[in-house]
C-alpha cells in the first residue's frame, strides 16, 4: 500500500458513517495550502489591478516553477528525514560550470545541460556517501559541503558573469498558450514525483526509510542506497533549477542560489511536507511553490511600504501556515 499520507483513511471512523466531500477535503494534508492559495489570490486580485494580468500570471508561473525545482531538491532528502543545506551551493556551482562550458569551452547547449545535471548528481553522490560512511548528521555534512561547492564556484568564476549560448534563454522565456514552458516542466516534474512515490517500489522504499529507518532496514530495504539515491536526486534537482534560472534570467553568475536554502525548506513546510520524513503530497508541494511566489509578487504589486516589506512577508507566511494548524484541529474534531 502506498505510504502517501492520507489522514482520512487512517481515521478510525465508525463503519458506514461517510464524511461529506468538504469534510473529506479538509482531512487531506494539502487542503490548508489550497485554501491559502485561494485566499491569497482573492486578496491580491482585489487589491491590485495587475495581479491577474496575463503578463503577471506568465511571470508568476515561471517563478513558481523554478521555486518548485529548488524545493524538489530539499524534498528529496526531507522525505527520508534528512536535509540538504548545500542546495544553493550546488546551484551556484552548476551555474558556474554551465557558464564555463558555454563561454570558455564553446560547448553546445545539449551537452552542457547533460554534464551540468551529471555534476549535480556527483555532488549528491558525494554528500550521500559521506553521510553514510562518516555516520554524521546530514546537517553537518551538507553544511561543510556547501562551503566546498561555493568555494569552487567562486574560485572558478571570481564573481564574473558568463555569456550563455544563443537561444539558451528560450526555455525560460517561452510562452506556451496562456502559460510558460517552465510551468509545463513543473507539472511534469510533480506528476513524475507523484508516480515515483505512489506507484514505484523504490519510491515507497524511500518513504518507508523516512517513516522509520530501522524498521525499513529490518524489512530488507537497503537504507544506505536509498540515502545516496535521495541525495543524488536532490542535487540533480538543484542543478536543473540552476539551468532553468539561468535560462530565465539570461545570465549566469556565481551568486545564483545564495537564497535558495531557505526557500527550499519554506516551500516544503508550507506545502504540508513533514521535514522529519515519511510523507509526500503532490498537491501540497505544488501549492507551496505558488504560495511563496504569490506572496512575494503580491507585496510588490501592492506597493507596500519598503521599510515594512519583510514584516508583511513574515506575517503573511505565518497566516498561511496557521491554516494548517486550524485544519488539524478541525480534522481532530471530525474524528
Amino acid at each position: 500500500m502506498s505510504k502517501v499520507t492520507n489522514e482520512a483513511r487512517q481515521t478510525n471512523r465508525p463503519a458506514g458513517k461517510q464524511l461529506s466531500p468538504l469534510k473529506r477535503f479538509f482531512m487531506e494534508p494539502y487542503s490548508s495550502a489550497v485554501v491559502a492559495i485561494v485566499l491569497l489570490l482573492a486578496v491580491f486580485s482585489i487589491s491590485t489591478d495587475s495581479f491577474l494580468s496575463q503578463y503577471n500570471l506568465f511571470n508568476l508561473s515561471r517563478t513558481a516553477s523554478i521555486y518548485a525545482f529548488i524545493a524538489a531538491a530539499q524534498l528529496m532528502v526531507a522525505v527520508i528525514g534528512g536535509m540538504n543545506l548545500a542546495v544553493g551551493a550546488v546551484g551556484s556551482l552548476s551555474t558556474v560550470l554551465m557558464g564555463e562550458m558555454m563561454q570558455n569551452y564553446g560547448w553546445g547547449t545539449v551537452p552542457t545541460v547533460i554534464v551540468t545535471i551529471l555534476v549535480g548528481g556527483i555532488c549528491g553522490v558525494i554528500n550521500g556517501f559521506l553521510i553514510n560512511k562518516l555516520k554524521l548528521q546530514p546537517f553537518v555534512i551538507t553544511l561543510a559541503m556547501s562551503f566546498v561547492y561555493n568555494g569552487i564556484s567562486v574560485g572558478i568564476s571570481h564573481g564574473m558573469p558568463y555569456e550563455l549560448n544563443e537561444g539558451f534563454d528560450a526555455l525560460g522565456r517561452q510562452q506556451v498558450g496562456p502559460t510558460s514552458m517552465l510551468f509545463i516542466l513543473m507539472v511534469i516534474m510533480v506528476v513524475v514525483l507523484l508516480i515515483f512515490f505512489r506507484y514505484l517500489r523504490v519510491g515507497r522504499d524511500v518513504l518507508a526509510v523516512g517513516g522509520n529507518a530501522t524498521a525499513a532496514a529490518l524489512s530488507g530495504i537497503k537504507v544506505d542506497r536509498v540515502n545516496i539515491l535521495c541525495n543524488t536526486a536532490s542535487c540533480m534537482f538543484a542543478a536543473i533549477a540552476a539551468l532553468l534560472w539561468a535560462s530565465r534570467s539570461g545570465s549566469a553568475t556565481s551568486t545564483t542560489g545564495s537564497d535558495w536554502m531557505l526557500y527550499s525548506f519554506a516551500i516544503c513546510a508550507i506545502g504540508g511536507i513533514r521535514l522529519n520524513g515519511g510523507n509526500f503530497t503532490a498537491i501540497g508541494f505544488f501549492c507551496g511553490a505558488w504560495i511563496l511566489t504569490m506572496i512575494r509578487n503580491g507585496l510588490t504589486m501592492m506597493n507596500v511600504d519598503i521599510y515594512y516589506e519583510q514584516a508583511f512577508l513574515g506575517v503573511i507566511i505565518l497566516l498561511a501556515v496557521s491554516l494548517e494548524s486550524l485544519r488539524l484541529k478541525m480534522a481532530e474534531q471530525m474524528k
Binding site: 517563478t63 551568486t255 512575494r296 504589486m301 506597493n303
Partner: peptide, 25 residues
C-alpha cells in the same frame, strides 16, 4: 510610481524589478 528596495542579490533584483514593471504597465 514605486520604490523597490532591500535588494541583496542579482536574482532578487531581477524578480522584484520584473514584478514592479508588471505592476506599473
Amino acid at each position: 510610481c514605486q520604490t523597490v528596495a532591500d535588494i541583496k542579490t542579482v536574482d532578487e533584483g531581477y524578480t522584484k524589478v520584473s514584478d514592479a514593471i508588471t505592476a506599473n504597465p
